[in-house]
Structures are given as C-alpha cells and as structure tokens.
Design a binder for these strands. Structure first.
Lengths: 165, 165
DNA sequence: TGAAAGTTGCTTAGCACTGAGATACTTTGT
DNA sequence: ACAAAGTATCTCAGTGCTAAGCAACTTTCA
C-alpha cells in the first residue's frame, strides 16, 4: 500500500522535518502519473506511425466540427503549446498529406487547417485503440472512483482558470 | 462549472457518438493539469536560475540521505527519464559546481553523485518557495479533498505498477 | 481617416530529451 | 577459472519544444 511518492514524503520527513511537503502528495503523483500514461499512449500511437503531438492535432480537428477544420490559433488554445510548435506540427502533417492549409477567405492573416481523407481515415483507425488503451489504464479504479477523480481534477482545473474555450 | 475537457467530451459526443470517450474525463484532465502545474513551477525555478530537470536532481539528492549522495542509476529510477538524460543533467550541474561525480569505491562501473555546499545552499533556498507555489496551486481544494485526491492518484499509480523503490 | 495597438502565423536558435549503441566492469553458472 | 549474461554509465544523432522576434494584416479609437 505505498507508491514512490510515499517514499519521497517519508524522505522529506527525515531530512527536512521542518518543511510541510504535503502538497507533493497530490502534485508529485500527478506528475508521475502523467509521465506513465504518456509513455503508454505513445506506444499505441507508434503502432500507427504517429507521435503524441500528431495525434493531438488530428484528434482536435476530428472532433471540432463536421468539416474537421480549425485555425492554427484554435489548435494552439486546445493543446497548450506555443505557436511555433503548432507550425511545426502542421508542417509535418501537411508533408504526410494528413492535413491541408488554405488561406482564410475572411481574414488576410488567417489560415484554415483541414483534415484530408487520409487524415480522417488514420485518426478514425487510431481512436478505438486509443480509447481501449485509456480504458485499460483506468482499470484499477471503479466507475464511481473514476467519476469522483474526474470531479476533483475538474475542480482543480477550474480553480486554476481553465475554461471551456 | 465546466472546464476545457467538458467541451472536448461534448464535441466527441457530437462527432463520434458511437465512441465511449469517458476515459478522457480523467486522463485528459490529468494531462492538462500536469502541463499547467509544470508551467507554474517552472516560473518559480527560473527565479533561482534553475530548470525543472535540475531542481529534480538537486531535490532528489537533498532528500535521499544525510550525505546527499546517490548513483546516476538511483536518480534515473526516481525521475523516470533515460540514462542519457541523467548524464546530461549531471554534466550541467557539475559544470555549475552544484554536484560532484566520484568513482564508486566498491563498483568499478559505478559513480557517486554528491551535492556540493553550493548545491545544498541553492536547493535549500528554493525549497520553501517551491512548496509555497505548490500550496497555492492546490488552494482550490479543501484539505479533505486533497487527501481524497491523493488517495485516488495513489490507487491508480499502484495499479500501474508504481512501487516505493 | 490614420496611427497605434493587437492578432495571426511563421522563422530560427538553442535546449533537453529519447533511443540505439559502445565501453567497462561485475555477477552467474558450470 | 572462465565464458556468458547482466549492469552502470556515457555518447551521439535525431527530434520536438520554447522563446524571441518578424511580417502581414485587422481592429480600435481619437
């Protein structure tokens, strides 16, 4: 009944008993889990010749609307990376023929990114296995525990200013 | 009462109602939170001329034992990065005079990494502000909510094989 | 209407990580 | 005692990100 973070907290208690290291019980685990989950999801993406960044873009386009189309700024907001990262992700996806970039009709600065047929086929092929992988990662939690956990995480996200956007 | 992940789930419900996207309620939030928290902690580290990777190494050495000493392999286990990453982190810290590398006395292959006086001073200066930052990130949750959240995250970590190690 | 401020997407340099592989040493099993 | 397997650390090429800055365009407001 102990994970790596329990050890870390114990060590802090011995070496720096004057400090209150309790926030690490949440944030240390959060970081560690995110790393483990990422590594597992990456393995699934790799089976389809994808990386996490490409999946992120394709999935965001796929769910956004019936046209599977969005601006780079919209992709940036959704993925929380910088504009430079979005440009490079789109460069790679465009080179593989999975998305297209077209100048916006209304805004001279703007670009419209759209999933190609190949892109749509690929993301629709990966999605079911992706969700199976995610499901299996959560197998250690009951449905009720998952919902409670999701609620706590949402409360925390909202307290940090996360919005629907 | 809605965060970005609520929007994502809604969009999947519209574009792919056949899929069960519910795992994203937990894992999507986990990823998003980890990114937000990382960015905030980074800002604090930067005030002390540190990055997250360096803080990670210095803090691990600080809490490990009274000698503040560990092998690269031990650091690797704790931080979940590859051996190549540890080598490069140590190169940087050694160049700044914050840690030393000495050949192991018992194992010809081994190396012993130890915090220098400067390294100890630095990490002890950063730790209090780090914990304050973490505390403030969790301000949106009550003590009971934090404990419950930490428990759920530990259950999940253990189900994925995380050990005290 | 025109200047200032803001927005959008792209470019580039620098950085830190991964993954594969090399080297040196230790442990295991016969 | 010795070969085979295992372990510890480092090297290096490739990759993807950030941060800063730029150019083109739009919005705001006096």
């Amino acid at each position: 009944m102990a994970d790596h973070v329990d050890l870390v907290l114990e060590q802090w208690g011995e070496q720096r008993p004057d400090l209150d290291a309790s926030p690490m019980a949440v944030l240390g685990r959060l970081k560690r889990l995110a790393q483990l989950v990422d590594a597992e999801l990456r393995r699934n993406f790799a089976r389809h010749d994808l990386d996490s960044a490409s999946f992120d873009v394709l999935a965001t386009l796929r769910r956004s609307n019936a046209e599977h189309s969005l601006t780079p700024a919209g992709l940036m907001r959704s993925s929380m990376v910088t504009s430079g990262a979005i440009t490079q992700r789109l460069d790679r996806l465009e080179a593989r023929g999975l998305v297209t970039r077209a100048p916006s009709e209304t805004d001279g600065r703007g670009v419209q990114v759209t999933l190609t047929d190949d892109g749509l086929r690929l993301i629709d092929a990966v999605l079911p296995t992706h969700l199976e992988t995610e499901q299996s990662l959560l197998a250690g939690l009951s449905k009720a525990e998952r919902e409670q956990l999701a609620d706590s995480l949402r409360t925390l996200l909202e307290s940090l200013g996360d919005k629907r956007d």
